[in-house]
Each structure stands twice: as structure tokens, then as C-alpha cells.
Design a protein around this nucleic acid. Structure first.
Lengths: 371, 371
DNA sequence: GAGATCGCTGAATCCGCGA
DNA sequence: CTCGCGGATTCAGCGATCT
């Protein structure tokens, strides 16, 4: 049951340093921090992958796998002991209405989930990060491992955890946010590299994932702790969304990369942050408005995200494809054979040689509406 | 490690009754069946946890339900004991190369997964059943719980489990099947009803889900056991796909519904049940046979796929290139500086001005072998 | 310059038979 | 059991290079 925060705890909280990266073992550092001082914990612990030999792609290139010492454990027992120790230290830090997110793959997530339940946390959802561009299964021996699992849990059964229902609904184009999130891997310019061009961290998470986590379950000003800070994705998103963060990271190399990254982040305009997380949904924009305003022309062709489909815009803001017509969502869903489809992110248009999602135009409209 | 099946076990297997539904507690019934007689187990155990249903200890005594918050630990313990007991009985029944699927939600799946790992099973994939039409979260306090999780595991780490890679790939429109499957809930006419119009079983699974499970991981004629048979979805799909099934169900009402359901199922035409085979399953052809049969001549020159290398054929079916000699694979790998090389697709020969892969000739030989 | 092509890469428990 | 070796196996996205 949630307890009221004592005055003493409040004083200790005031002594907390925010927006810092602590060096050292996460369990020891957490034990040194004041109890009940944290609103949200995001934890991306070692997965204990247990990889054996090397793996090559069909073109004979070698897969650069995670073989770092920090991911090696002697046994499930050893991994469980580690897991339960850091989860215990973490729970002490959470405010009574605080919550935690942990992420893992099938190698470790069942042990994480059981440890959370055994440790007194109260599970709220398991969330599937559905990767739009996973690495294939090169030997054809199993299904393509195309997702990872996040577990969202409150500190206790009765906790009044934060959930920004309307913000999630708005993010999902007006319908309730589901427990499966389709988000691409962290690649391209977002992926941090060393001076020699290697990836700075083997398992850097996409900022879009953390963005959704924080928009869902924190408020501006909340304190977010990441005990496995790595190169600081949690801190970067927290700073941008005007949350405060505390990172803990053992490896000096990762901390250095994170410090540089964070220094370059500018917080989002505070009104934009407030809008995203308020109970008010973002102003709804009909697709037809884009046509009315001439941002897209009737007769123009949109292409699907994957490039496999195309459709023509009609003057009333509906689309026509081969034998299908309807809203941007309906046509996308029909062409993909999917139950639903967010047309705003599915459909793209060409502008100056680039392929741009139509959601880009919606954001433009919304910006105008706020003035 | 897989053990060889003993003669005694073989005899006992012959005594197994197929396509039957056993009445009774699944642990007791499983303990009465012969060891190493089952190819695949599909299990949809109680999701339980808050002990709304009944729970049994390994000795089958009924657990006196306690649902107070303070006793949550004891409840998890009881659920774990039950889980580990039936998983142990199930593992004994599996052939050395057998496998299991279990399904659960976030309430129980973490305990299932950990119990599988602790029990010696080897996890192959966790698979997300992504519901296209989930029930909304009416109170808006959490994310819409839009998926369930299946775990696919082999009996042991070294098992040569069945995976019909090509069939899955075909089912997914020519690209590898991923670990997330979008399938609607069981509704409409597929949903079994009682005489009074109520649903016959609270958690009836869609046949499409079982269809994919069986096409992925069984062959025609395989024996599929379902220890929580319910209204017989596993049996229905097994019968239709010409697999054999064994069901175990405690509740007489469910068994009655399942019996009627199964009686109406007609097996699919046996040719339609055959799945796409992979190249691995095709008869092996030595390269030398092509020379023996005069499809290629000793002394003839082969060129590499990329045109950068050439090699001469010797009478014994080996190749010679500059300073390299050996099999078609070895020479290809050496010339490319690659760890391995599939000589069948790497090497090409000239015929009527065209460049043809030598694999074309292997296919000719294989076609002759089938006659 | 625009479009096509090529190369690279991502948390991976990734082969199987015969000697 | 190990060892040797034949030979089967990849999707999406980004960025650089080529036409």
C-alpha cells in the first residue's frame, strides 16, 4: 500500500542532484540515494543472451553480436540474484505512487517479470516493442525475433500511478493506445558512433520508445531514474520533455558519450510539452484539411511507408487505390490486410525528392492552430 | 540432451490411444501415459493468479484460496508449484526432439517462462498473438491489453525440433515469419455456444492461432497433446491438418462440447496438408555425379557468380584454381576469402552463350531421381 | 541533379550428417 | 563424444556511389 511521504524524506529528496550521471555499480548507488524520491524508473538491464559461437549472414558477413562482459552470467540463479537485488534497491527509491518500466527479450524477460511480481511490484501492462526493421533469422531455424517486451509496473497494488490516457490516445490518432508499439530500431544518425565509427553502445534504444514511455507515465518535472544508463537515451528524452533524470552507469566510456549527448539537447518549448501530456487531446486535424489548404493536391499520389502501395487523393480527403476507397486509415488497412492502420504515419508524399509522412503536414497545421 | 527412444518405450507408445479426450486432472493423466511418445504439446493453462479458479499442489490437493494482498507471495508460490508440476509431467512425455507451446498473459506468462527455463526446456521464441480486435480498456487506466504471449520451447538445448521454415515464409507472403502474429479473437460462428446461447468456454482460442502453431512446428501424423483441452480447439485443428491429438480435460461440460465439435471435423485433403519443403530435405547430390554423367566435362572451366574468378573441373569432381584445389565449396570460399561458400550457387558454366549456375544441373539430376 | 544500385548493419540463445 | 565438411541461409533502412 502506498505510504504518505514523510517530511524527512521530503528533505532528503531536496538534497538529490538531478540531471546527473552517477558512476558505479547501480545497486550500490541506488542504496546511497534517498528513499521514495523517484517518480519513474526505466531499466534496460543486461539480457543474459548466452550466445555461443559466431554467426554469419548468408553473404558471409559476420554479425556483430553482444559479447560484452557485462552481459555474461554464470547461471540463471546468478542472473536472478542480480535481478532481485537491483529491483529491491530500485523499489526503495520509488515514491509510493511511482512506477517502473523494464525491457527485455525472451532470454531474460520472464525472469524479470517473475522477480517484479515476487518483489511486491504490481504489473500494469506488458508492452510489445514491435520492431519494424528487425534483424532476420539468418539460418532459417526459428521465427524472426522481431520484438522486445517491456513491463510496466506500479510500486504496489494500490498505487495511484500516472497514466496520461488522453495523451496516449492522441498519439494513436484518437483511439486507445494498445499494448503493442511499432517503432523502428535505433539506426542512422540517431545511432551514436565512436571516433572510429563503431557503435558507441551495442544496444542503444530508440528515443521514440522512451518518448512514448515518458509521455504515457510521467508529468513535466518528474524525476526519472535509469540504473543502466548506457549512452543516455533516457536522459536525452527526459531533458527534451522537461523531466529530470538521474543516470547510473558503470562504464566510463558510456558515461562520456552520454555527457556529450546530453549537453547538446535543448528542452522542448514548455507549452508543447504541456500540450502533449495534458488531459486535452491534441487538436484533431482531418486529412481533408490538408487538401483544402493546398498542402496536398487532389489527384496527387501517396505512397505507403513500405513503398508497396500507392493511392490517389480525392478532393474530399478520401483516397482511391485499386478497388479500395475510403479514409487514409481504411485504405491503408485494406491494402495491408491489417485490421487497422494509422494513415498519418503510413502514407507518404514526395517533396523535393524526399519521401515525407503526411503526419509532417498535420504537425504544420497544428502549429498554426496554436498561434 | 535428447536420448534415444528405448524399445520398451516404443512398445508403450504403440499402446497409446490417439484422437481421444481423457477425463481427469492433467498431471495424473500425463503421469499415466508412456514417456517420450509425444511430438508436440500445446498448453493453455489457467491464467489464474488471483485464485478465482481452483489451484492444485503437485500432490493434487486443492489449494485453499487466499486472495489477501499480504498473501500474494504464497499465491504465486502455489501457482508456481502447479506450473512446475505439470511442466515436469509434460516434459517426460515429449520425444527427445519434441517441443511445447504455452500461452499466457502478463498475469502468468512470466512465471510460465521462468518455469520452462528452470525445468530444462530450451526457449526458441516468444511469440506475440497480436489481437486485431481486442477488448478496449473501459476505464482508461491502462493501455488496451491487445496481445497475449506464446512461448515455443524445445525439450532440451540440443533438440532437433521441427520448424517448417519454408511453410511459414510462404504464409507470410514470401518473407520470413516474424515473432508477432496478427490474428483476430475467436468470435462469430467459430465461437462455441451453449444451448442457452452463452459462450461454452470463457477463453476459447481461435483456430487460426493453432493452425499457425501446427503448420510451423509439426508434420502430418505427429502426435499433439493438449493437457488443458477445453472445448478442443487443438484437437479440431489437429484433425483437420491430419495430425493426431490427445486431449485432457477435467470438466465434463467442456469435454461434451469438444466431442461434438470434433465429430463434425473433416480432415483436409492430404495433399493440401503437405507443406513446402526446404532444400535441406531434398536428396543430396555430389558434384562429381554431374561430371560422371557428362553434364559437365572434366577440363571445362567454371566462373564465379561475380565473374571475378574461374576454376577448372577435374575428373574426380574437384576444382582447381590458381593455387587452390578442393571441393566446389572449398575453392569458392578460398577465392572469396569467406568462411564458407555454397558452391552450387557460386559457380556458373556457359551454355549457348548464357551463364548458368551449376545448381541448375543438380535440379535436373534430382528430377531424374524422382522418376 | 535525379534515380538506381550497392554495401552495410541491427540485443541472435541460428546446421546436420557421417566417420 | 568430437571432428570434418557439405552446403543452406536475410529484411528494412540508410548512406554512399554510380549512371
Amino acid at each position: 500500500m502506498p505510504k504518505k511521504q514523510s517530511g524527512q524524506t521530503g528533505a532528503a529528496v531536496a538534497a538529490l542532484d538531478y540531471d546527473v550521471i552517477h558512476a558505479g555499480d547501480c545497486i550500490e548507488v541506488m542504496q546511497s540515494l534517498p528513499a521514495e524520491s523517484i517518480d519513474l524508473i526505466f531499466a534496460d538491464p543486461p539480457y543474459n543472451l548466452q550466445l555461443k559461437g559466431e554467426l554469419h549472414r548468408p553473404d558471409n558477413s559476420r554479425v556483430d553480436a553482444v559479447d560484452d562482459a557485462w552481459d555474461r552470467f554464470a547461471s540463471f540463479e546468478a542472473y536472478d540474484a542480480f535481478t532481485r537485488a537491483w529491483l529491491t534497491a530500485a523499489r526503495r527509491l520509488l515514491k509510493p505512487d511511482g512506477a517502473i518500466w523494464v525491457i527485455g527479450s525472451y532470454h531474460n524477460v520472464f525472469r524479470l517479470g517473475a522477480a517484479l511480481q515476487d518483489g511486491g511490484y504490481w504489473l500494469l501492462n506488458d508492452v510489445i516493442w514491435r520492431k519494424s526493421n528487425p534483424m532476420p533469422n539468418f539460418r532459417g531455424k526459428r521465427l524472426t525475433n522481431a520484438h522486445e517486451t517491456l513491463i510496466w509496473a506500479a510500486k504496489s497494488e494500490g498505487s495511484k500511478y500516472t497514466f496520461n490516457y488522453e495523451a496516449m490516445k492522441a498519439l494513436n490518432d484518437g483511439v486507445q493506445m494498445r499494448s503493442d508499439w511499432t517503432i523502428p530500431l535505433c539506426t542512422g544518425s540517431e545511432r551514436l558512433k565512436t571516433a572510429t565509427g563503431e557503435k558507441a553502445h551495442p544496444t542503444q534504444k530508440p528515443e521514440a520508445l522512451l518518448h512514448r514511455v515518458m509521455v504515457a507515465s510521467t508529468r513535466p518535472g518528474d524525476v526519472v531514474l535509469d540504473p543502466f544508463f548506457g549512452t543516455g537515451t533516457t536522459g536525452a528524452v527526459a531533458k527534451r520533455l522537461r523531466r529530470r533524470f538521474i543516470g547510473i552507469e558503470r562504464e566510463a566510456d558510456y558515461r562520456a558519450v552520454a555527457e556529450a549527448r546530453l549537453a547538446a539537447i535543448r528542452p522542448t518549448d514548455s507549452e508543447a510539452v504541456a500540450v502533449t501530456t495534458s488531459k486535452r487531446a491534441e487538436p484533431r486535424v482531418a486529412f481533408g484539411v490538408l487538401v483544402e489548404r493546398g498542402l496536398l493536391a487532389a489527384g496527387e499520389t501517396l505512397v505507403s511507408m513500405n513503398g508497396r502501395h500507392a493511392a490517389r487523393i480525392r478532393a474530399d480527403g478520401t483516397l482511391v487505390a485499386s478497388e479500395v476507397r475510403g479514409s487514409i486509415h481504411q485504405v491503408g488497412a485494406a491494402l495491408e490486410g491489417a485490421p487497422s492502420c494509422n494513415g498519418w504515419t503510413y502514407w507518404h508524399f514526395r517533396r523535393d525528392g524526399a519521401i515525407v509522412p503526411i503526419d509532417f503536414l498535420r504537425q504544420q497545421i497544428r502549429a498554426e492552430m496554436q498561434e
